[in-house]
Amino acid sequence: MSNQKIFLRLAEETDAWVMSAIHIAAIKALPTTFYTRKQLLAWRNYRNKPDGKNILQNMQAEIFWVAVEKHNLAGFASFMVDELIALYVHPYYQGKGIGRALVTHFSHEAANQGVDKVITTASLYAEGFYSRLGFTAIKRTPHQLRTGIVVPVTKMSKILTPA
């Protein structure tokens, strides 16, 4: 990570709006290299403005952690036991090790629960990132977004060392 102090904490319900804004900003910053504009728009639920309702709903089942720098949320991850469900870092904070820190935290949490292998569904943009963190591609598969649009993704897994 950079020289800036970044720490991780459990997300709170009051973070949902900002996490929605991070989700939108991260997707808006992506080029149309792997997905069309229509697919990218669907991925952010056709939103240009944050709406934390979906995140609040997901917080009922998933564990959310946020990365904080100087009282500002920089990114977040959500997971359930052995599956990393979402990982987003605001474009302003990308390249500072925040995504790596969130994935490492998820892996440690899983290992502490006795999990020996974790999985994630990576966008084609994130496949290389996860590979650098020790994940292995299982297979490329279609993934249906909430909006009904289908995008190609890569199922990936990582073997954990016992905690």
Rank of each mutant, 00 (worst) to 15 (best):
110 A>E: 11
106 F>N: 10
77 A>N: 05
148 G>T: 02
30 L>V: 08
79 F>H: 01
129 F>I: 09
122 A>I: 12
162 P>R: 11
131 S>Q: 15
91 P>H: 08
48 N>Q: 02
122 A>N: 15
113 Q>W: 12
103 V>G: 01
40 L>Q: 05
134 G>Q: 09
154 T>I: 14
40 L>M: 07
128 G>S: 14
104 T>C: 14
9 R>A: 04
158 K>G: 06
121 T>E: 08
58 N>A: 07
107 S>V: 14
56 L>S: 05
41 L>Y: 09
53 K>Y: 02
16 A>H: 05
154 T>H: 02
36 T>K: 11
127 E>T: 10
92 Y>C: 04
117 K>E: 13
147 T>E: 10
14 T>E: 12
71 H>D: 13
38 K>G: 03
139 K>A: 13
135 F>T: 07
145 L>H: 00
55 I>K: 09
149 I>W: 13
151 V>K: 09
5 K>M: 01
98 I>C: 12
108 H>W: 13
40 L>K: 04
93 Y>N: 07
14 T>V: 10
24 I>T: 05
70 K>A: 01
37 R>W: 14
34 F>I: 09
45 N>V: 00
19 M>G: 05
75 G>D: 05
126 A>I: 07
22 I>D: 00
103 V>E: 00
144 Q>K: 15
81 V>F: 12
109 E>Q: 13
96 K>H: 10
13 E>T: 02
85 I>W: 00
140 R>K: 15
19 M>A: 06
67 A>F: 00
104 T>M: 09
41 L>Q: 12
14 T>A: 08
148 G>R: 04
161 T>N: 15
151 V>F: 08
129 F>Y: 04
56 L>P: 06
103 V>W: 11
1 M>C: 01
104 T>F: 12
107 S>Q: 13
69 E>G: 08
79 F>V: 03
112 N>C: 14
44 R>F: 03
148 G>H: 03
28 K>T: 03
121 T>W: 15
127 E>M: 02
132 R>G: 05
76 F>V: 08
77 A>M: 10
56 L>E: 10
65 W>K: 00
145 L>E: 01
7 F>E: 02
136 T>C: 04
37 R>L: 13
141 T>S: 04
137 A>F: 13
46 Y>Q: 00
49 K>A: 09
159 I>V: 14
81 V>R: 05
40 L>V: 09
